[in-house]
Design a protein around this nucleic acid. Structure first.
Lengths: 228, 228
DNA sequence: CGTTTCTTTGACAAATATCAAGCTAGGTGG
DNA sequence: CCACCTAGCTTGATATTTGTCAAAGAAACG
């Protein structure tokens, strides 16, 4: 459960000052939420919640990144989404989570009691509409991601890089919070294919990969062409 | 728009008696909706709404089937979902549709004014929660479908058949409302692969295909094994 | 009853996965 | 501060899966 995985910071302690990203930044924002929650730090790969667990909390990324995923019996994992600073996840209309969530890197999350939101929603339509809108936005993003999954490896990786750059609010250079395995499980490919595709994009001059966690978008036009 | 595609029945006419499926049946149901809408018939492949159009109506399948989809620039199409009798689609939190919808076969739909729902929601939390729950359910289903998309062709087809049988409330035999091309675009495969895979499943005795629109589930255990 | 559309099948090509090995970088302890 | 050690990443050779192209067969429709 939650307390077992939360690291270092108790709910009553404020987290250490957030890194580059404030909780307010980012486009997935739901500004009204911030006063309702407490900050909590999670170690790299720490479980945030598991599939089937009660939906006690809703989360907003302050710094770091989170992933939600499902696993098949044979161990294959499909990452549904990554969540970057400012974005909300773990919100469900039902009593149980339909997927699991983990911290991608050491992360600080704003943890909000779901029951507080739900009762607030019963008093104010604005809140009620916000809950609906957050879920609807996520549905839209997942549908868009499905379109990515039917494309070629090059196209998938190009889409991924452009999407990430946009969501991180940068234009030229990405600092990847996630491993190759994470990217592979998000794009429905293997790590080898991810690696080869990055090399390939680098050799055509579309990107540069100075270190394995840093990607320079050298030729956005070429990437956008793949993005279609 | 709506009126151009609706066939034969004016909104004030009741539709001809629904085929095998009543509007109340099925699990995606939202029973309270029925009084609010009018029935309308759509021809095979008629557009119900297009991506980007205003979200004026919400739809519930009375008889027949609908599909929602997105298309890539190069023409590839990804079907997000099929909707069977009793199921609701076209509900969005925003003012514009994020995907397009068409009738798979000649279908009768219950057409409900979105504005009626939204204003009802402002008065009653129960309605408000229903809207949220409907969107959340759809999110869950799309996430589950993403897991299907990372699997092998055999597994995808087996999952599809089992899902359809369950949603149609049958155990032994399926009457497919959709073409091979629809199935292909739903599962991220080509029609040739769909056809070959069905033949293959037939040769192993898992299914029988007496006519191309009828599938007999001969060995559910074998299919479930692929379902994982 | 012919015409058109959809489905099946075959041969081949292309893309991606798998298996195996080597490389790199980051972290740890001497 | 350096050297080792481990994780993660890259690369190569090969196998498998699925897509593509082409043609024939079946079903739906007027």
């Amino acid at each position: 459960m939650l307390m077992q995985n939360a690291q270092t910071l108790s709910p009553t302690h404020p987290a250490k000052p957030a890194d580059r990203w404030s909780a307010e930044q980012g486009n997935g924002g739901a500004p009204g939420l911030d006063a309702l929650g407490v900050r909590m730090a999670f170690a790299r790969n720490a479980e945030i919640f598991g599939e089937g667990e009660p939906t006690t909390y809703v989360y907003k990324v302050v710094s770091g990144a989170a992933r939600t995923y499902k696993v098949l019996d044979d161990g294959r994992r499909q990452i549904s989404s990554f969540y970057l600073p400012g974005e909300v996840f773990g919100l469900e209309a039902t009593a149980a989570h339909h997927c699991s969530a983990e911290a991608v890197t050491r992360s600080v999350l704003l943890v909000i009691k779901r029951s507080a939101l739900v009762s607030l929603a019963e008093a104010e339509h604005r809140v009620s509409h916000m809950l609906w809108a957050l879920t609807a936005r996520e549905l839209q993003q997942v549908r868009t991601h499905m379109l990515v999954l039917i494309r070629s490896a090059q196209e998938r990786v190009a889409c991924f890089l452009l999407e990430l750059a946009e969501r991180m609010g940068v234009t030229d250079q990405i600092e990847l919070p996630m491993s190759r395995q994470d990217i592979a499980d998000y794009l429905g490919l293997t790590i080898e294919t991810i690696s080869r595709t990055l090399t390939q994009l680098e050799s055509t001059g579309a990107i540069a990969v100075p270190t394995c966690r840093r990607i320079v978008l050298r030729d956005r036009k070429a990437l956008k062409r793949l993005h279609a």
